[in-house]
Computed example of a mutant assay.
Amino acid sequence: MTGLRALALDFGGTLARPGPSTDGRTVAKALRELPGAVVPERFAETFDAVARRMRRADREGSRQTPFPRQLGQTADECHAILPDLVRAWEAVFTAVPDADIDLDAARTLRELHESGWVCVLACDTQRPEIVRRRTLQAAGILDCFEALVLSSVVGVRKPHPAFFAAVAEAAGCLPGEILFVGDTRAKDVVAPIEYGMRAVLVAADRPTNLDPSILVIRHLAELPSQLEALDDR
């Protein structure tokens, strides 16, 4: 591929099937297993209310409120006791299953990695890096990634320019040398292109009003055979 050296891959909907989200009842149940934690009955409803407020604020600024801060705010409001917020964060996302990685997508990733592409995972998530690494390791593809760029770590979400700056730094490439692959038009195609990257959309059908020069594939497994087509776009 002319000028392209690295792939930045989204996770849910691209490499994996979307996984379950957290809700107050699930979080409360996980936290009650922690030594020293005191989790009152109203923790669940308080957590859900805090989460809604923080999601609204995060969307407005493309920020990522750290999940431990969300837990801490909930604990303050309902008088829960959580001795170690980072440990609580890991406990929640150990209890809540991560997304299932698509086997064909995993095979394609390995093929691309072994052919010389620098691969970076680039996704929005509340999960800590240790949990996402565990998921990738279980699927046998952790070694395919040069780095993981997670909104939970960098503190901003796509489409914030700082997220794409972190991707470029992790890949060790200029933006124009990176192909971003994801399933969300605004965050995985429009935003990286505005930052100077190339992009491919993973979608069952081409969305209306999408620039005809954008390559659309139905599944990540189609990417290797379509890469040469990018030279003509």
Rank of each mutant, 00 (worst) to 15 (best):
T2S: 13
G72K: 13
A30L: 06
L121T: 00
F67D: 05
L121I: 01
E129T: 08
T14S: 11
A138D: 06
G24A: 08
E33T: 06
V38D: 09
L136E: 03
I130L: 14
A28C: 08
L136K: 04
D124K: 14
D10E: 00
V38R: 12
T94S: 13
A44L: 11
W89I: 03
I81V: 15
L82Y: 00
D23T: 04
A57K: 07
R133L: 09
V96I: 08
T22D: 15
A105W: 00
F43T: 13
T108I: 04
L136M: 01
V118E: 04
R69Q: 14
G140M: 02
E90F: 03
T2P: 13
P20Q: 07
V96Y: 08
W89A: 08
G12H: 10
A6Y: 04
V27H: 03
T125Q: 12
I130M: 13
V50T: 00
T65I: 13
F47D: 03
Q126M: 13
A28T: 03
W89P: 07
A91Y: 00
G19K: 00
L34F: 07
A37N: 03
A91F: 09
T2Y: 07
T74F: 07
F47G: 05
R56K: 11
V131Y: 08
A49E: 12
L9G: 11
A80M: 11
D48Q: 05
E111N: 14
D23E: 06
E129S: 08
R107W: 02
A51R: 10
R132E: 15
R53E: 10
H113G: 10
C119P: 09
A51P: 04
V96K: 11
L112N: 02
